[in-house]
Amino acid sequence: MTIATPAHPAQTTAESAPAARETPRRQRRPHSTFRRIGRATVPYWLIAPFFVIFTAFGLFPMLYTAWISLTDRDMLRPDAAKFIGLGNYTDLFSDEFFWNAVGNTFLLMAMSSVPQLAFALILAHILNTRLRARTLFRMGVLLPNITSIVAVTIVFSQIFGRQFGLISWLLDTVGLDPINWQAGEWTSKTAIASMVIWRWTGYNALIYLGAMQAIPKEHFEAAAMDGASTWRQLWHITLPALRPTIAFTALISVIGQIQLFTEPLLFDNSPGSVSGGNSHQFQTLALLLYEESFRLHNFGYGSAIAWVMFLVTMALAAGAYFVTRGTSRLTGGSR
């Protein structure tokens, strides 16, 4: 299970692409073990809490969810649950609401991840110059990330309000018609993607900034002497060096988007609705899972959705791992 490696940037970058970031000196002796200490059982006691908690509240629920997904189980009548094999899965694949949610999830993923990472790169590039009030700017761009998604969505829903929203008012002042953001297939997704982009751009920019500062300065000095503009330097020096970091942030962003839940839940202006709009135009997989399980009480069907989401996540992570490994081998080889 080495697909786990890209999950940790320090590992990805320090172990598979050393030049991409700073590696503190002490780490040059990373795996030396302090061999003489440790009585036989003490280490196991030290790591036991993690394994106990994970088994009880991570692994067991996953496996139990797999079992529930093979049954027809109503939340309100657990005793009447009956085994139906893969029935929920075959239903799922012929359910237009499921495919709608798949489409929405992936569209939102593309609409939020791509601009978010691109903006973050540009922002990091600007932050990586000699600046006054450097810390203030960094804190400024990180501010969105520390606010809760609930808060963000409440505020953005008001800004995107149809008749009395700030944006509709701005459009009105320049003579355009107000937009009913929530109703449209694309406008609603744009609004939700903008919340995600707003919240995560600065965070990713700081990760990139950290990676950029690990690039040896000489590379830039040489390029500057050759007369390369700063944006050319970004393209020819920074980007190639940042490839593993970019792959990592892309993976994290994609995994986050598969589980996109709070934004579409709270953006829905129909009171009490959890269906992601009148046409389910922004119902994501996580929202469908919630609606099926906790509104319609179909625990079996909801569990099948959970497992499909899990498998998709795993597939994407594996894909990202192979892409990253490929890239880091390339960058490693070219040096």
Partner: peptide, 24 residues
């Protein structure tokens, strides 16, 4: 091997087990 297990679990989106976790 145990460290590898720990790292692998980071890939597991725990909230996908919420239905069972709720029952539990």
């Amino acid at each position: 091997a145990l460290l590898l297990v720990v790292v692998s679990t980071m890939m597991v989106p725990v909230q996908l087990g919420i239905i069972s976790l709720y029952i539990e």
